[in-house]
Simulated assay, not measured.
Amino acid sequence: MIRVGIYGATGYTGMELVRILQRHPGAEIAFVASQSQAGKTLRQVFPAAPALPLIAGAEAPLDEVDVAFLCLPHAAAAETAVVALAAGVRVIDLSADFRLRDAAAYAHWYAHTHPAPELLAEAIYGLTEVCRADLPGARLVANPGCYPTSVLLALRPLLLSNVPLAGPIITDSKSGVSGAGRTPSQTSHFVEVADNFSPYKIGRVHRHLPEMEQAIGWWRASAPPLVFSPHLLPVPRGILSTIYVTLGADATEANLRALYGDAYAGEPFVEVLPAGELASLAHVTYTNRCAIGLTLVGRTLILTSAIDNLIKGAAGQAVQNMNVMFGCAETAGL
C-alpha cells in the first residue's frame, strides 16, 4: 500500500486528489495539510469530503508516507519539496516550481529566485505519456500545467515526425474558472464570469508559455514559434485548445491521422477521435482523458484537444505518474 501525504489539500486540485486516492486500490491517505485551514477537518471545507483532520504543513508526519503531493503556490512548493526529499519521501509537485529546467527563466517568469535550483536537473517533467520510462526511479516529478498538457499532447506526434512545418503555431485555448484556483478574485467572481467569455494574458505573458516552448524545443529544434492565447470560459472546469499548424508541404488527413493513431496506440488516457469528430469538453470532464481531433484544411492542420483541467491537467495526471513510479497499474484509481 502506497502511503500518501497531500499538502494544500483545501484547494480544488487537492480535493480532486483526495477523491481519486480514496478509491485507489493501492494507496491510502496518511495526512492532508493546509496552512489556512489547519485545525479543521476537510469535510468542514468541502461538505462532500471525508472528515480527515487538516494539519499545518510543518506538522506533517513525513516518516509515515512514501510520496507527497504538493498542491502549493510556487516557491512554497519547492521549499516543501526540499524538506520532503531530505526525509526520504518521493515528491510529485503540482506547482510550477520544477517544470522549467532553467533557474533564470523561472526567476524571470515567476519573479522569484528559485529556492532549490540544484533540483531542477533531477526533476522529471511528468507528462506521463512521454516520461513513462523515467518515472520508476524518480524522486521528484514536476506535474505539467493544465494548458501545456492539452497543447503538448496534441502537438507531440507532429513535432516528432518528419512533416515540415511553416509559420507560427497558433494555440487558442479556453479554460474553466477552476483553473484560476480557489482564492477568489474579481476576474473569477461569478458576476464577472457568467454570461461572459474573455481572453486574458494575450501575447508573451502567460506563465505556461515557457513551459510549452521548452517541451516543443525538446521535440523539434527548429519548430516554428508558438503564439498562445488563453481565454476564460464561463464553466467550472475543462480546457479546450484549438491549435493551428501550417504544414510546409502537402499532406493528407489520412496520413496525419495514421501518424497520431500510431503515436497513441494503446494509451489508456489519450483518444484520437474519428474523422469528422471534434474534441469537446463533454468528451473529457470528470475523467483523466485527453481527446484529440484532427482537421486538415489545405496546408493548415487544425487540432482540437480537450482535457479536464483538474484531473488530466492536474490531480489525475499526478496519480497517473504515481502509479508508474510505484509499479501500480497506470489506470489504478482513474
Rank of each mutant, 00 (worst) to 15 (best):
V45G: 09
V45D: 02
F46D: 15
P47I: 09
A49S: 04
P50D: 09
A51N: 12
I55S: 07
G57W: 09
E59M: 02
P61C: 01
D66F: 04
D66W: 00
F69E: 10
L72K: 02
P73H: 06
H74E: 00
A76F: 05
E79A: 14
T80N: 02
A81D: 00
V82A: 12
V82E: 01
A84H: 06
L85V: 06
L85D: 11
A86S: 07
A87Y: 01
V89N: 00
V91D: 10
L94G: 14
L94P: 12
S95E: 10
F98R: 07
L100A: 08
L100T: 07
R101G: 13
D102C: 04
A103F: 02
Y106R: 13
A107P: 02
Y110N: 08
A111E: 13
H112G: 00
H114P: 03
P117D: 06
L120N: 07
Y125E: 14
L127Q: 13
E129H: 04
C131T: 13
R132V: 14
R132K: 03
D134M: 10
L135T: 13
P136M: 12
A138I: 04
A138K: 07
L140H: 08
V141E: 11
V141P: 13
A142C: 05
G145L: 07
S150E: 00
V151K: 12
L155H: 12
P157T: 08
L158P: 00
L160D: 03
L160A: 11
P164R: 08
A166P: 05
A166C: 03
A166V: 10
G167Y: 07
T171W: 01
